[in-house]
């Protein structure tokens, strides 16, 4: 019994010292844009996770700031203002990977921890929680190879031409095809990550494509549009990879209930802001955190569909908030 008391006393002591490390620290979120559902969900998640954290005394403050206009110069000024306000850490979703480097360097020189996520910055003194978009493309082929071992013809829906993300995901998809030669991409259109654009683009290319399309590889925000185009053309519905949007999940559920349709859905959860928050907290706590971290994907499989759909608001994106343990797992994986 005595042992037990000592042990608990020790644990309490340990946890309280761990808390004491960051309980006086203030963290700020510098965000460049809030004009779409993904960013709104991102800010909402930040609020959901940081509010209890502040109340529990894990950190002293976790204020979110969004610039009025999506401009790098304005965000640079915003970061400099945060330095003036004496924050201990700045979590940033950057308007530009390079144009904030000056301000980020100023922050580092002032002894402030800078953690960038989603829109990362290249300044070496900052931490980066990056998205492995290439892997996101490759994973689709891995899934297809499992589901359709005999392979077949694929249609690729790309994003917005000329954007880095589009190139990366597409490169991943093509790498996946190279590794799984039973698949062949017979057509490729730009869906601009928007359902209406994707629907028009797919409807346009369908007449020129062979009848036996087995799968559609996508980039998110385009799966529902592709499905509508296939339905309108009276074609057999191929396996369309989804991108966690609510309309995509709702359509998938409808098909699943009607004919047992199977697919998977993958994207980045807007709650990645909370992962960045915990990473910043861990760095302030004195933990050894590698500078380059990778965001885990939020993947929805057949079994998890109902649960995800339930928690996703109409017009929104499936989301997940990260805990301290998740952050520690991500940090451990990077070491």
């Amino acid at each position: 019994m005595k042992h037990f008391v000592v042990m608990t006393g020790l644990t309490v002591l340990l946890t309280s010292t761990a808390l004491a490390e960051t309980s006086a620290k203030r963290i700020a979120l510098s965000n460049n844009y809030a004009g779409n559902s993904w960013r709104q969900a991102m800010l909402q998640s930040w609020e959901t996770i940081t509010k209890p954290a502040v109340e529990a005394g894990i950190v002293a403050a976790a204020d979110a700031f969004t610039t009025a206009e999506n401009q790098a110069t304005e965000q640079a000024a915003q970061i400099q203002n945060m330095i003036l306000e004496g924050y201990d850490a700045i979590v940033v979703n950057a308007a530009s990977p390079t144009a904030l480097n000056g301000a980020v360097k100023e922050a580092c020189d002032a002894g402030i921890t800078v953690v960038s996520f989603d829109g990362i910055v290249t300044e070496p003194c900052a931490w980066r929680i990056a998205v492995d978009f290439k892997q996101m493309g490759k994973d689709q082929l891995t899934y297809l190879a499992e589901k359709l071992p005999e392979g077949g013809k694929l249609l690729e829906i790309r994003g917005l031409a000329g954007v880095f993300v589009d190139d990366e995901i597409s490169a991943g998809i093509h790498e996946g095809v190279a590794e799984n030669p039973q698949f062949e991409i017979v057509g490729s259109v730009h869906g601009d990550w928007a359902q209406d654009v994707a629907q028009k683009a797919v409807a346009g290319i369908l007449p020129s494509l062979p009848e036996d399309i087995v799968g559609v590889v996508t980039q998110g925000g385009d799966g529902y549009g592709a499905a509508q185009a296939f339905a309108a053309a009276g074609r057999d519905m191929p396996l369309i990879i989804m991108g966690n949007r609510q309309d995509e999940l709702a359509w998938w559920k409808e098909q699943k209930d009607a004919n047992g349709y199977e697919t998977m859905s993958v994207s980045i959860a807007p709650g990645v802001s909370t992962l960045a928050f915990w990473v910043a907290q861990q760095i302030l706590d004195g933990q050894d955190v590698p500078k380059e971290l990778v965001v885990p994907f939020l993947r929805i499989d057949q079994d998890g569909l109902e649960a995800s759909l339930e928690t996703t608001p109409a017009g929104g994106v499936a989301n997940v908030e990260y805990s301290l343990e998740d952050a520690q797992a991500v940090i451990a994986a990077a070491k």
């Binding site: 401009q71 110069t73 640079a76 530009s96 390079t98 904030l100 000056g102 301000a103």
Partner: peptide, 17 residues
Amino acid sequence: CLVGLTTSADANIALRY
């Protein structure tokens, strides 16, 4: 001057100007 402050550039860096 702007590049001197930001350390690198971006094609949209100064649109607000």
